[in-house]
Every structure is written in structure tokens, then in C-alpha cells.
Nucleic acid binder design. Structure first.
Length: 459
RNA sequence: GCUCCCUUCGUCUAGUGGUUAGGACAUCGCCCUCUCACGGCGGUAACGCGGAUUCGAAUUCCGCAGGGAGCGCCA
């Protein structure tokens, strides 16, 4: 039985890199008909916040990455960790270390000065008697031999135990630390495959040693390369949209983000577009690339437009409604959102842009002087003509509207474009809109007539 | 400094000893066109470097260079 987990620490928002890790982990579990678990690694009491927990939960929900078990919180498992620490102490797999932070600091400095790798020197490893005073608990790492594991993505990885030191598993206040809680949790939750960022590669041999000390078999590991910003540098605040929910605010559809993310490091021949069903079937950890990948925002936009055009309309409507609300556009009085999507999706890249450019369907327009100036006096009689015909049009429908426009242009001896653009400005307040006949249809007769009349009545 | 990881067009990638090195985004040109777009057609553009193995290397091996990660009482 395959059991995977996504184990973020709640010290910030759900990051795009974390989202991909979650996606890969989720896909693998779904593909193998296994279990996907969400675990919140909040043992760092200083930096973990409830807001971050909520942000992660929200992000997962928006991406529709559902979990079968959890969310589990490590802070609720402290008793269990204490129990295992005691067990390890009892069997001699761990020991109390009374070294002061000052001593450790001095040790580190000396090692760095000596061009050595800073690590604990095992000072308290062989103490025979317990002392008074504060202590931490350290894991007794093997001093010889190597740790080997077969990474699903990187292949065989080997580490010498001499490179590892005796890491702290319980702080002086008794709280457990990361490398230890991960192991205990992965054991208790019976995790079969650990999918995580490759910044954890160096932690893996330490964790495997703890597994062995507890006489458990380590899970399989798959270490994903990191995601870089579009400038090829490490992702940071300066790259803007690093949080998943920020992509939502920018008008990206979750399907587009997921599709984009999955192709960042994984591929199936030349295929670019994948449904979730296809991904569950086709995805494989073995096919994941080993090199870090840089973000390509334009490609995300391209995918986003694809999903706006061809994705699930009902879902897109919900997201669009959210954006409309964000922009304070009341969509009750105007065309159905489905019509907006049909009309705008091939000319906008994001839902936010779609919402922004659809305001004139729902609200009164303001014609700036600059726009007004683009409607020449010579054209006004033709506009009036169009207006009169529209008023009398029996069937308010774009092909009929189109006929009126074409006829009016012909009558006035104008190319359609010469008439259409001024009318577009008159009815939308701008130079950009869907095809004019459709635009007029969707704005509705009453509003169109009113807007056109405003042009020729004011002269 | 030490350990580990990585390296095909600008970007994401296909490629597993013999290909005109393919696709996608972006970009450029043309076509379509009532605006903006969509779409169609075409173009520019890559195997980091040096050895070795081989009849033959993007593909195997070894160096080098460059990039990244880790080396916490953070996760």
C-alpha cells in the first residue's frame, strides 16, 4: 500500500514549490491507489502561526489536492515523541548532552577556522554518569560505514557516516526537533514514499540512521529539484507571486497552475495539456527531472488561457464571479458570466484581466476626452443611423446587429472598421472589446441606445 | 572549507550509441481581421569545456568549469 504525505511547516504561505511537491506526492498516491496524508510540521513554536496553517489549508483546497488522512499536527504528538526519546535513551541509541551553547559555538568557530566541516564532536557521547543542569538529547549516529539509499529520482546516493554528527533530537526544553519527528511520524503514519524538495537530501542519511536505530525500514525517497524564479535565481519575495493564493488573485485557474507545475520537471513526450485523470494515469516519479527548473510566467498564462477557453465553464464561472466581486462589479444586472467567458476568453490571459475588461457590460461607462476625441463629427450621422436601426431591431441578436453595422457602413461609404471603432468606443468607453456585434448584443439594447444617443445628442 | 546534487534553444522539455537534435512558451515574419485577440503558415535559436571508450557520442566513463543545497537547541 502506497502512503505518501505532504509535510509543510506553517511558517508562511503555500509556496509554489511546496504546491508542486504536494501535487507530485498526491498524484503518486492517486496513481497507486494509495493514501495521501497532510501533516503540519509545526514543532518550531517560534515561527509557526495559525495564519500559515490556514493559508496552507486554503491553498490545498483551492488546488483541489484532497488528503485522505490529516491534517496531523506535530504539536499534538509531543507525548509520543517524548516516549520515543525515552525509549532511545533507554536502549542507548541516544544520549544526554550537557554542552553549553558557548562551547558549541566555540567548537564551530574553531572548526571553520580549521577549514573543517562544523559538527558536534561527540563530547558527551561517552559520559557514564548523568549530571545536573540542562541537557539536550542527541542521537548516537553510527561512527563508521555508509548510508546508502536508492532515490527514485536521483538513483543511488551514498553518504559516509563520518560526515554525519550526533544531531539533537530533543531540545533543552524537551521539545523534539525536525529530523527526529519526521522519522517518528513517517513510522507511525506508515509512510511508504517520501516526496520532498532536494534541500532534504542531506538530511536523509541522518533520518535513515534513526529509522535503523528504531529497527524500522525507511520509506522510499524521491527528492525533487527546486523551482527557480524566472531570472534563474532562487525564488524570493522579489519574484512576486510565490504564494499559490497570489496566483489566484492574479486570475490564474487552479487547473492551469497544476498543469504548469506538473510540466516543470516532468513530461510525457511532447504533451503539454493534461487533465487530472490523465496525470493520475501517466505521472511517474521515475520520470522526474533532476535539474532545477526556472519559472516561465508566459507559459503559465498560455495554459491559463487554454483552460479559460476549454476548461470546465461552471468552475471558471465561479472563479470569475470571485474576481468580479473583488473588483466590486455587480454582475446581477448584465449578461450571464458564461457569455462573458465565451466572449472574452480568447482575448484575455487571466480571469482578473477578463473581469477588468468586462466592466462596461455591467456598469455605466465614462467616456474620457481622449476617447471622445476619437469619434469624429463626420461619423456621427452614421452612428445615429445605426442607433435608430438598433432601436427598431426585432431580434436582438449579433448576426442581425452585424447586418445593421455592415449596411450602415456601406451606406456611408465607409469601411466597416471606420464605423465600428467609433461605435466600440461609444458603447464600451474603450478601444478593446469582443467583436462589436457580440459586444452590442451582450451589453443589451437599453444601454447601447443610451450610450449611442449620448454621442450624437451632444453633437 | 567540507559533503552532496545539478548542467540540451531565452524558458519548460523530448532524446537512453547512428535523428536534418523534435515539441511547447516567448520572439520575428506572413496570412486572417471591425479593435484587442484567437487561429493558420513559416523563421531565428541548444547538447558548458577538455579528455577517454567506440567505426560512430547529446547519449557511456574521467577530469574541469559553472550553478545549487546542506553543514542550527529551523524545518
Amino acid at each position: 500500500m502506497v502512503r505518501t504525505r505532504f509535510a509543510p511547516s506553517p511558517t508562511g504561505y503555500l509556496h509554489i514549490g511546496g504546491a508542486r511537491t504536494a501535487l507530485y506526492s498526491w498524484l503518486y498516491a492517486r496513481k497507486m491507489k494509495g493514501i495521501f496524508i497532510l501533516r503540519i510540521e509545526d514543532t518550531d513554536l517560534e515561527r509557526s502561526t495559525p495564519e500559515s496553517v490556514q493559508a496552507i489549508l486554503d491553498g490545498m483546497a483551492w488546488l483541489n489536492l484532497d488528503y485522505d488522512e490529516g491534517p496531523f499536527y506535530q504539536t499534538k504528538r509531543f507525548d509520543r515523541y517524548r516516549e520515543v526519546v525515552a525509549e532511545m535513551l533507554a536502549k542507548g541509541a541516544a544520549y544526554r548532552c550537557y554542552c553549553s551553547k558557548e562551547r558549541l559555538e566555540a567548537l564551530r568557530e574553531a572548526q571553520i577556522a580549521n577549514k573543517e566541516k562544523p559538527r558536534y564532536d561527540g563530547h558527551c557521547r561517552h559520559l557514564t554518569q548523568a549530571s545536573d543542569g540542562p541537557f539536550v538529547v542527541r542521537f548516537k549516529n553510527p561512527e563508521q560505514g555508509v548510508v546508502e539509499f536508492d532515490d527514485l529520482i536521483r538513483g543511488k546516493l551514498t553518504f559516509a557516516n563520518t560526515e554525519l554528527d550526533d544531531l539533537i533530537i530533543a531540545r533543552s526544553d524537551g521539545t523534539p526537533t525536525y529530523n527526529f519527528t519526521v522519522v517518528v511520524d513517517d513510522i507511525d503514519m506508515e509512510i511508504s514514499h517520501v516526496v520532498r524538495g532536494d534541500d532534504h537530501i542531506n538530511n536523509t542519511p541522518r533520518q535513515i540512521n534513526i529509522f535503523r536505530a528504531l529497527e524500522k525500514t525507511p520509506p522510499h525517497y524521491a527528492h525533487l529539484p527546486m523551482i527557480l524564479g524566472s531570472d534563474g535565481k532562487r525564488l524570493s519575495k522579489r519574484h512576486g507571486a510565490a504564494s499559490v493564493m497570489q496566483y489566484r488573485e492574479e486570475g490564474i485557474l487552479p487547473q492551469a497552475l497544476l498543469n504548469y507545475l506538473v510540466r516543470l520537471g516532468w513530461s510525457h513526450g511532447d504533451q503539454e495539456i493534461f487533465s487530472m485523470e490523465e496525470l493520475i494515469q501517466l505521472f511517474d516519479l521515475h520520470g522526474v527531472n533532476r535539474a532545477p527548473a526556472a519559472l516561465n510566467p508566459e507559459k503559465l498564462l498560455w495554459l491559463n488561457q487554454h483552460y479559460m477557453k476549454h476548461g470546465d465553464v461552471a468552475f471558471t464561472m465561479k472563479e470569475l464571479a470571485w474576481h468580479m466581486a473583488q473588483l466590486n462589479i455587480n454582475t446581477n444586472d448584465g449578461p450571464p458570466l458564461a457569455d462573458i467567458i465565451a466572449a472574452q476568453s480568447e482575448r484575455t490571459k487571466t480571469l482578473r484581466e477578463m473581469a477588468e475588461r468586462s466592466r462596461f457590460f455591467y456598469e455605466e461607462i465614462v467616456l474620457s476626452d481622449e476617447m471622445r476625441a476619437q469619434i469624429s463629427v463626420e461619423i456621427i450621422p452614421a452612428i445615429q443611423k445605426v442607433c435608430e436601426k438598433l432601436e427598431k431591431l426585432s431580434e436582438w441578436e449579433k448576426t442581425k446587429i452585424h447586418e445593421i453595422l455592415v449596411a450602415a457602413a456601406e451606406e456611408a461609404g465607409l469601411k466597416l472598421g471606420k464605423l465600428a471603432q467609433p461605435i466600440r468606443i461609444a458603447v464600451t468607453g474603450g478601444t478593446i472589446s469582443p467583436p462589436l456585434d457580440l459586444t452590442i448584443q451582450l451589453i443589451g439594447r437599453e444601454r447601447v441606445i443610451k450610450r449611442l444617443q449620448k454621442i450624437f445628442k451632444q453633437g
